[in-house]
Computed example of a mutant assay.
Amino acid sequence: MFRKLLFVCGLSVLTLFANALELKEEALRSVFEPSFVTTEGEQKAGTAFVVKYKENYYAVTAHHLFSEAGGFSREYNWRELQGLVSKVSLQSLSDEKIKYSAGKAIEIKGAKSVSIWTGKNDIAVFKLKQKPDNYLTIAQLPPKVGESVWLYGLVYNRPPELLLHKAMILEYGKNWISYQFEDPGLNLNGTSGAAILNSKGEVVGINLSGGDQEGKLYGYGNPLVSIQSIFKQFVQ
Rank of each mutant, 00 (worst) to 15 (best):
K4C: 04
L6D: 14
L6N: 15
V8I: 14
L11W: 13
S12A: 09
S12N: 13
L14E: 10
F17G: 15
E22I: 13
E22L: 08
L28F: 00
L28Y: 00
S30C: 08
V31L: 00
S35P: 02
S35T: 11
F36S: 02
T38S: 03
T39F: 00
E40Q: 15
E42N: 09
Q43L: 10
Q43V: 13
A48V: 02
K52S: 12
K52F: 03
K54S: 12
K54R: 14
E55F: 12
N56A: 14
Y57D: 05
H63G: 08
F66N: 07
S67W: 01
E68D: 08
A69W: 11
G70H: 00
G70Y: 03
G70W: 00
G71I: 01
S73I: 04
E75L: 05
W78C: 08
W78D: 13
E80Y: 03
L81G: 00
V85G: 08
S86C: 08
V88R: 07
Q91P: 01
S92I: 04
L93D: 06
D95Q: 05
I98W: 03
K99C: 05
Y100W: 05
G103K: 02
K104I: 05
A105L: 01
I108A: 02
I108C: 06
K109R: 14
K109H: 05
A111Y: 03
S113N: 08
I116M: 10
I116R: 09
G119F: 09
K120A: 11
N121A: 06
D122G: 08
D122K: 07
D122T: 05
V125L: 03
K127Y: 01
L128D: 04
Q130Y: 08
K131W: 00
P132D: 01
D133F: 09
D133G: 14
Y135F: 15
Y135S: 10
L136I: 05
T137P: 01
I138M: 10
P142A: 10
P142Q: 11
K144Q: 03
V145I: 14
V145G: 01
L151V: 13
Y152A: 02
G153R: 08
L154F: 10
Y156Q: 14
N157P: 07
P159I: 01
E161F: 11
E161L: 06
K166H: 09
K166C: 03
A167T: 05
M168K: 15
L170F: 04
E171Q: 13
G173P: 03
G173H: 05
K174Q: 13
N175A: 12
S178W: 00
Q180N: 08
D183Y: 01
L186I: 09
L188C: 10
L188V: 02
G193W: 07
A195Y: 06
L197E: 12
N198H: 02
N198F: 02
S199K: 14
E202P: 12
V203M: 04
G205W: 04
I206E: 09
I206H: 01
S209Y: 03
D212K: 15
Q213L: 15
Q213R: 12
K216L: 11
K216I: 06
L217E: 08
Y220Q: 04
G221I: 01
L224P: 07
V225Q: 14
I227F: 08
Q228I: 03
S229W: 13
I230W: 07
I230M: 06
K232E: 14
K232W: 02
F234Y: 15
V235T: 09
Q236S: 15
